[in-house]
Simulated assay, not measured.
Amino acid sequence: MTEEWTSATRAAVAALTSATDDDVVSAAVARARGEITTGVTGRPGAGKSTLVCALSGRVSGTLREIHGVDAPDVPDPPLDVDVLLHVVARGITDADRAVLAARRSAPTLVVAGRLDLGTDEPDTVRADDVEAIVGWWTDACGTARRRRDLLLCAELETVAAERPHTRAAVEAFLRDPAIIAVRGAS
């Protein structure tokens, strides 16, 4: 995502919020434009804490370690983050596959955590390759932002249909060239 594109989208959102004082629109915009959240999951002992420490100060926004993947007597954790780094040790288990399946279309990277245990899993990034992880994370945040912008457009279409006093402002927003580009890029 280019900075120019992000700035144009931000300007379109600002024009929308200044054109209406509808609380429903404001709430939708707040959800969509809020901070991108990143979670680090994995089975106990996979190297989640080590990865979080390595990334602290290297990524912006909320970075939180999520416990409970394949942990005894712990319910499956909610995976309600925008970007997910899933840490594996030795290989991918059924519990890991369940996490990855739950995140099917959301940005998720599999990281080989416990390098001392070895792993022969393809399509993983080594936990000690912090530059590669940060590069992937940067791209993933752009993808997450586009997903949020698309969800905002869909939510605002519903708002416009249900709230006639807001319709003109929402329709102007949806006709903005930056928003047309967001919707066309999906």
Rank of each mutant, 00 (worst) to 15 (best):
V99I: 12
A89W: 04
A154P: 02
L151V: 08
D139I: 03
T143W: 10
T138Y: 10
S105G: 11
G113T: 00
E121F: 05
P107N: 12
T108N: 07
E131I: 08
R103M: 12
D139L: 11
R103G: 04
P107V: 02
L85D: 00
G118V: 01
R104W: 13
D94W: 08
D82G: 03
V88T: 14
D82K: 01
A95L: 06
A132N: 11
L84A: 11
V99Y: 02
V130F: 05
D116P: 02
A132H: 12
E155Q: 14
D120L: 09
L84D: 06
T143R: 15
R145D: 14
V110Y: 02
I92H: 05
P122M: 10
V87T: 08
P122V: 14
G118K: 15
D149Y: 09
V111M: 02
V99Q: 01
T138S: 15
G135Y: 10
L109Q: 10
A127V: 03
D94S: 14
A89N: 08
A132Q: 13
T119S: 15
L150C: 03
D80G: 13
A144Q: 01
V125N: 03
D129C: 05
G135Q: 13
I92Q: 10
G142V: 01
A98S: 14
R97A: 13
D96T: 08
L117I: 08
W137K: 08
R103A: 06
V99W: 02
G142T: 03
V130M: 06
A101R: 15
S105L: 12
R103F: 04
R147L: 10
T138R: 15
T124D: 10
R148N: 14
P78G: 07
V110H: 01
E157R: 15
L85W: 01
T143F: 08
D123I: 10
L152E: 00
A132W: 12
P122W: 08
L100F: 11
E157Y: 06
G91V: 05
L79M: 11
A106R: 13
D116Q: 12
T143K: 12
R90I: 10
E155D: 15
D94M: 08
V110P: 00
G142K: 07
D120R: 12
D76R: 14
A132D: 11
R147F: 08
A102I: 05
L79Y: 04
A98E: 12
S105Q: 13
R90V: 13
R103H: 07
G142C: 08
R145Q: 14
A98F: 08
S105H: 14
V87I: 11
